[in-house]
């Protein structure tokens, strides 16, 4: 099952600090809810455990993450792993654009690929939960950046 979600958000922080935050795996992983055991492998690769699922269909996943820098203040994250008879792969592309007056536009595009047990509970439910999760992540990124910029 594949779910695509996208959106954009204005951040009251300069583009340089936003890009610095997004290319620091520890900072980004801190924005993912219900995680534990972050381990930095190198500057671009990391592992962590995250609780994934809905209600009782919920368990700890072992996730591997990495990112690549793209042209024009863009970054592309891949996070994938397995748990509770399911597998998940998240592709998150974030593009930053300078907006002036210390503000930055953050445009994001994500693809969730789910297989196994979790994918079977129903597309509409998975979509709603994925939307909620990605909103938590994006809002946390914004909140961290804006606090740091103050």
């Amino acid at each position: 099952m594949q779910i695509k979600l996208d959106g954009n958000m204005e951040i009251t922080a300069p583009i340089a600090s936003a890009y610095g935050f997004l290319t620091d795996t520890q900072s980004v992983s801190g924005c993912i809810p219900d995680t534990e055991g972050f381990k930095k492998i190198d500057d671009k690769n990391f592992t962590l455990k995250a609780k994934v699922g809905i209600g009782m269909v919920r368990g700890l996943f072992d996730l591997r993450g990495s990112f690549v820098k793209k042209e024009g203040s863009a970054v592309s994250y891949t996070i994938e792993g397995n748990g509770i008879g399911s597998n998940v792969k998240i592709l998150l592309d974030i593009q930053l654009k300078e907006k002036g007056a210390g503000a930055t536009d953050m445009v994001w595009d994500s693809t969730f690929e789910l297989g196994g047990l979790i994918s079977g509970v129903g597309a509409s439910i998975i979509k709603k939960v994925s939307e909620d999760k990605i909103n938590i992540i994006i809002t946390a990124i914004k909140s961290h950046l804006e606090s740091a910029a103050k």
Binding site: G55, V121, I125, K128, V129
Partner: peptide, 9 residues
């Protein structure tokens, strides 16, 4: 739908 599934289970 989401709490419906959670409570159903």
């Amino acid at each position: 739908a989401v709490p419906e599934l959670e409570h159903y289970l």
